[in-house]
């Protein structure tokens, strides 16, 4: 199956400043693809390039099999939900969708039915004739989501769709997005600053920093790969001698102690049992041993630190 998005060395420079730097990306079809990065990392510029709204300085890309030079074909087949809903506040919800349906060439005979179905599904049908400026931010974002689905696109770009939403609204929108993908096989290209959101929704996550792709992996592998395995040992009798004995073990990298528990970092692939044995031999009483993994946030920060280190602290690549 052809990938939904393929980029080869995609680069965009603004007056010598590389916003997107030789980006090589492959997004499989039918998944939620998370595109993470700090502010100014190049996420939005990447989306603009893939939508054909900006021309690349170098490199190429194919979106749904269309080259970037066929931008109008790309735009016919993709939907967008941006951080700002991009709705006309001086039009009703229905008129907004009617305009976008016409713009996306939804046949006139199908427009009414599709708008009704989407608004009903998202719980906005009763307020279809109200001006959008009377809507809450959550309702506007739902409406923007409905707009993105009007022409049944194969790919949807979502640029921080839940930014600024309250917890229930964000959760409802996330649920709608996941249901859409699982139900229709639509590919979602999602940028977000909410790492918990990325972790719970995305099948694959790419991290971009200073315009460069840092890594692409599943959320699980990103977390486990972020740091060495760590265990938390809860118990009593963790004397200094016991801690020293642990530190002497070849499989132990570091040991830190806090109230009634030890945090032991061990080498990847090594087992915890020698650690437990060494402690009991020193007279410690162990109540609980818990394997802890890095959160996606820790993994993300570790990746950013790594790339910053590689760049030698330079703020941004220059031509």
């Amino acid at each position: 199956m052809e990938a939904a998005i393929v980029t080869n060395g995609l680069t965009r420079t603004f007056d010598g400043l590389r916003a997107v730097d030789r980006l090589d990306l492959e997004v499989p079809q039918g998944i939620i693809f998370g595109f993470l990065g700090p502010n100014g990392a190049g996420k939005t510029t990447t989306i603009r390039l893939l939508l054909g709204l900006l021309e690349p300085t170098a490199g190429s890309a194919k979106v749904l099999g269309f080259d970037l030079s066929q931008a109008d074909r790309i735009r016919e087949h993709v939907g967008v939900v941006l951080e700002q809903p991009g709705l006309y506040t001086r039009l009703s919800a229905y008129d907004n969708l009617d305009f976008f349906a016409a713009a996306y060439r939804v046949p006139a005979t199908q427009r009414k039915a599709r708008i009704r179905d989407l608004l009903t599904h998202l719980g906005l049908w009763e307020r279809r004739n109200d001006f959008v400026d009377t809507y809450s931010k959550g309702m506007k974002q739902k409406l923007a989501f409905a707009r993105a689905l009007l022409h049944r696109p194969s790919l949807i770009f979502m640029d921080e769709p839940t930014a600024g939403l309250d917890v229930p609204s964000a959760a409802a929108l996330r649920e709608d997005i996941v249901n859409l993908v699982r139900g229709s096989g639509t590919t979602v290209f999602l940028t977000t600053h909410n790492l918990a959101e990325a972790e719970s929704m995305c099948d694959l996550i790419a991290v971009i920093n200073k315009g460069k792709l840092v890594t692409v992996d599943t959320p699980d592998r990103l977390r486990t790969g972020a740091r060495k395995p760590q265990v938390r040992i809860v118990g009593r009798g963790f004397s200094p001698q016991a801690v020293d004995a642990l530190r002497r073990l070849p499989q132990v990298i570091s040991v830190t102690q806090s109230k009634g528990s030890l945090h032991v970092t061990i080498r990847r692939g090594d087992k915890v049992s020698p650690v437990v044995k060494a402690l009991t031999e020193q007279g410690a009483e162990i109540e609980e041993v818990v394997h802890t993994t890095a959160s996606l946030e820790e993994a993300f920060l570790a990746l950013l630190d790594e790339t910053d280190g590689q760049d030698g602290g330079e703020s941004r690549g220059r031509n």
Binding site: L53, R75, E76, V80, A103, Y104
Partner: peptide, 14 residues
Amino acid sequence: ERGTLETLLATPLS
């Protein structure tokens, strides 16, 4: 200014 331009430009309208 109203934040609607980018969404409009993302449509296939010529």
